[in-house]
Design a protein around this nucleic acid. Structure first.
Length: 926
DNA sequence: CACATCTGATACGTC
DNA sequence: GACGTATCAGATGTGA
């Protein structure tokens, strides 16, 4: 049957005015009045009226607060006041709307949206077809039978569920939830950080509604999952704020909104005044008009009272009762400096922090220092700020001279946060800090490596419930970030002095906690703290890298990459990006129809090495890709990158060691990572030839032999394993002999290889499945190997059981030296997570003990090196290996001292064995 | 809407 | 098992 032909058009006036204002150039009429927004709106109105709807309303916001402001004090708090050029166009717009014969609606206490929503539903219920004319996506929530949207400026329509689905990926009834998740920056309604249209639609697809998303919030992984959980409390309010009301009490109903005839006389005057030529032409049925001059001099606009005034004032600035704010002073006079120096000199200890202009401690210039002696009070001493119009500051050299006695006094205990950085910067500025006694980063790390990150902001939040001033707040971020020397002194003082203050407060809390745990305190006091300066020295030493050699290797790799690329293009029959797993997957599995035997964790067909190997016998391309990948990896990560990392001042590469980087207690290395320089392939190993010793010196490398297996023997006490190590046998061969039940001399190479895989697998807590994959044998066979292994080394099985048990009972495992690793997931319901925690539980004591041992050796060796600094430098640590740069004539002395100290770093049930080598480069030293 | 920035996915180097 | 880095691709945020 025919539908009722009656139509209602509801025009979202505010939305159009703003959009037209921003979208169009700032036009003006001959009198200089701004007309851009007006022009856009008038064109929109005229095109709307071409269809002669029976009913129409132009809806704008009324002045004053709305119910949303009552619900949420900060609603639209960020919205800047309406620009004057726009404000001036409001009244003319209303005049024109009026003259066009359209009713204008303006209802206090609600927004235009709510008026439109109410009228739309009333009309739809009466069988009237409603078109909402708006540029605002929020209205998609109203789409339903008889209600559609049109954006006259873009010409797009949205009048069905399918259209909404198409545009937003959610149904109209999900739009409110969708908006609640995303939030609205313009209205100052924060949603879930980093959740935009795609993410919101994805979640709603999975869980249907906001309630569903909230219910399953803990299933969502990654940073964005955290963001969601952080936002949970405010989401219901968001939903209320973004819901357009449909129950507003109105004086008029839809049928009171009949379109009247236009007042062409008034219109002509107005169009002429604002110079709308086309509109005039249409008005006169195509005839041009030239009566504009008569109107041009008319009096200006009436003072607008329309509802575009800036929105309600904000609520009070949030000032939650956190830890009391500190009292911070900026030291800018000799007297103030003397006073602080005197206080520092007579203090037992203090906290300090350096501000610089760079993250790299080998390049950073000291910009200022901060100190705190008692919590809540701190000072900042700017010494190298540099920006226009800044107040006076003290001279850097003079300040350092004044502070040097306290900084170098070993009897005055200093505490810092990640002090290795500050020590390094100060050393480069001629101050050798002594008495560096405590470091809050390391206190936190030793107390619980996984409970929190160990940067100061996280520590303050976690241990003090205190929100620090963020670096980005004073210096900005991204491309607009400024270096600290450009930060205004009062901002700098607020930020920097707080660093020292918070460090001191943290130390009070953390040292008290450590005092409760004597074993952990020993790890902290005997291992981590002494290591700080050792690492600082290794980093500062750097390692000599032969850039020319690497560039030659890069050129060689490039040549071979190009060949591989050409070959790949030929085999594929078209070009594609060899670096894109996605494109490669499409080519191999869709176009060429090769079997996708391996899946990525997300379930997509994997193109990793294993997957490509598996299909290499069916097509030439996979092999070529593997070749290309190997070459590309070496070039981009190593041969291209390392020369760039050479410090221009020292001519050497200075890595950064993260002492609180790995939960097991291992170090991590970055910028560049020198702990993953290739060794397994010939091409890769060649990179090590570029790590060289200068003239007259040699590279000496010393590494622990099988240290983790030895630790396993120690921890398990397994008689067979201990005996194998005591006898000095090749451990993999000995294992093979046991597992395969034959004399040690009869072990075949592939049996030794299998045994080696078993040994490694055990240390990683590997399953039969993993071992089978590693060895390329059926799972049952791998299972047999493991069973046989445990049969022959029953102590190892018991040790593993014991370790798992301890993890379950106490929630942590420990190293020989008492370092703890907490395993949060050990009781996880999720089987995969729990199994992962169990593997970590088994691996951590071995990996962690090895880390403890080499750290102890490093401290000892560094102490010995103290007297021999001109002859030898420690330059690298790679988990079980130490690398030195040594005067040729000193090599033998060093080797003896180092090997002895490495072997003596722990007393285990089995001997520690150290292998060593000497060469002109790192490759030769192996 | 163009551009910058961030995040996640994938892959792979070491011990 | 423990890491760090490169690249791509997509999404979000920003500003003209």
């Amino acid at each position: 049957m025919e539908t009722d032909a009656r139509r209602l058009v509801l025009i979202d006036g505010s939305s159009y005015l703003y959009r037209a204002f921003h979208a169009l150039p700032p036009l003006s009429n001959e009198a200089g009045e701004p007309t851009g927004a007006l022009f856009g709106v008038v064109n929109m109105l005229r095109s709307t009226l071409k269809e002669r709807p029976e009913y129409v309303a132009f809806v704008v916001d009324a002045p004053g607060k709305t119910f949303r402001d009552e619900l949420y004090a900060d609603y639209k708090a960020n919205r800047p006041p309406m620009p004057d050029e726009l404000r001036a166009q409001v009244q003319p717009m209303c005049d024109i709307v009026e003259a066009l014969g359209m009713p204008i609606l303006r209802v206090p206490g609600v927004e235009a949206d709510d008026v439109i929503g109410t009228l739309a539903l009333q009309a739809a219920a009466d069988g009237i077809d409603v078109t909402i004319s708006t540029g605002d996506k929020d209205f998609a929530q109203l789409v339903r039978p008889h209600v559609g949207l049109v954006n006259t400026m873009s010409g797009s329509r949205m009048d069905s569920d399918a259209a909404v689905m198409d545009k937003f990926g959610v149904r109209p009834d999900q739009i409110v939830d969708y908006l609640a998740l995303m939030g609205d920056a313009v209205d100052n309604v924060p949603g879930v950080t980093k959740c935009g249209p795609k993410t919101a639609a994805k979640w709603l697809e999975a869980y249907d509604s906001l309630d569903g998303v909230i219910e399953h919030a803990d299933e969502i992984k990654g940073k964005i999952g955290d963001n969601l959980r952080e936002a949970l409390d405010r989401l219901p309010l968001n939903r209320t704020l973004v819901t357009i009301r449909t129950d507003v009490a109105l004086d008029a109903g839809p049928t009171d909104l009949a379109l009247r005839d236009a007042d062409t006389g008034v219109l002509r005057t107005l169009y002429a005044r604002y110079g709308f030529k086309q509109a005039l032409k249409d008005l006169d049925g195509g005839a041009a008009s030239d009566d504009r001059a008569s109107a041009a001099g008319q009096a200006g606009t009436r003072n607008t009272a329309a509802g575009y005034a800036k929105s309600a004032p904000t609520g009070e600035a949030p000032d939650p009762a956190l830890a009391a704010p500190g009292e911070y002073t900026c030291v800018d006079s000799g007297e103030a400096l003397d006073a602080w120096t005197a206080r520092l000199a007579s203090a037992d200890g203090f906290a300090f922090d350096c501000e610089t202009d760079a993250l790299d401690p080998m390049q950073a210039n000291l910009v200022g220092l901060s100190f705190a002696i008692d919590p809540g009070e701190a000072c900042y001493i700017p010494v190298a700020h540099d920006y226009p119009g800044m107040p006076a500051q003290l001279d850097r050299g003079a300040v350092l001279d004044a502070l040097r006695p306290v900084l170098q006094d070993a009897a005055i205990r200093k505490v810092g946060q990640h002090g290795k950085y500050d020590l390094q910067v100060l050393r480069r500025h001629g101050v050798e800090v002594r008495g560096y006694a405590d470091d809050t980063m390391l206190e936190s790390f030793v107390l619980n490596a996984t409970a929190t990150r160990h940067d100061m902001d996280s520590l303050a939040r976690h241990y003090l419930g205190y929100e620090t001033v963020k670096y980005a707040d004073v210096a900005g971020k991204g491309a607009k970030a400024i270096t600290f020397d450009k930060v205004a002194l009062d901002d700098a003082t607020r930020y920097a002095a707080e660093d020292a203050d918070v460090t001191l407060r943290l130390h009070r809390v953390l040292s008290a906690r450590l005092a409760q745990e004597p074993t952990l305190e020993r790890v902290y006091r005997d291992i981590e703290m002494p290591l700080v300066q050792v690492l600082e020295r290794i980093e500062a030493n750097g390692v000599r890298v032969d850039a020319d050699e690497l560039r030659r290797q890069s050129a060689d790799l490039s040549r071979r990459m190009l060949a591989a690329q050409q070959k790949a293009t030929e085999l594929a029959g078209r070009t594609f990006n060899l670096d894109s797993p996605k494109q490669l997957g499409a080519l191999l599995f869709d176009e060429l129809g090769l079997p996708a035997l391996v899946k990525t964790p997300k379930g997509a067909p994997s193109t990793n090495e294993e997957a490509l190997e598996a299909i290499a016998d069916q097509h030439e391309l996979p092999r070529v890709i593997l070749e290309y990948r190997g070459l590309a990896k070496l070039r981009s990560t190593y041969t291209d990158k390392l020369p760039e990392m050479i410090n221009p001042d020292t001519g050497r590469v200075h890595t950064s060691y993260h002492q609180a980087g790995a939960a097991t207690g291992r170090l991590a290395s970055s910028d560049p990572n020198l702990q993953n320089i290739p060794i397994r392939t010939d091409d890769g190993r060649r990179i090590r030839t570029a790590f060289v010793a200068p003239e007259g010196r040699r590279i000496v490398a010393c590494d622990y032999s099988q240290i983790e297996l030895r630790i396993m023997a120690h921890l398990s006490g397994d008689a067979g394993l201990v005996e194998a190590f005591a006898s000095g046998a090749d451990i993999h061969r000995a294992t093979a002999a046991e597992v395969f039940g034959k004399p040690i001399d009869a072990v075949e190479p592939n049996e030794r290889r299998a045994a080696k895989a078993i040994n490694f697998g055990l240390m990683y807590g590997m399953s039969a499945f993993g071992l089978a994959k590693q060895l390329g044998v059926p799972r049952g066979e791998a299972q047999d190997y493991i069973a046989q292994y445990f049969n022959r080394y029953p102590g190892v099985r018991e040790f593993m059981e014991r370790t798992r048990e301890q993890a379950r009972e106490r929630g942590y495992v420990e190293t020989v030296f008492g370092r703890r690793l907490y395993l949060d997931q050990i009781h996880a319901r999720n089987q995969g997570l729990r199994a992962g925690a169990e593997r970590a539980a088994i691996n951590a004591p071995m990996q962690g003990t090895a880390a403890d041992i080499i750290k102890r050796a490093m401290i000892d060796i560094d102490g010995w090196l103290e007297a021999h600094r001109e002859h030898a430098l420690m330059v690298l640590q790679v988990h079980d290996e130490l690398v030195f740069e040594v005067e040729t004539g000193f090599v033998d002395t060093l080797l003896e001292a180092v090997v002895e100290r490495m072997c003596a770093a722990a007393e285990l049930r089995v001997p520690l064995v150290v292998d060593s080598g000497v060469g002109s480069n790192w490759e030769e030293a192996h």
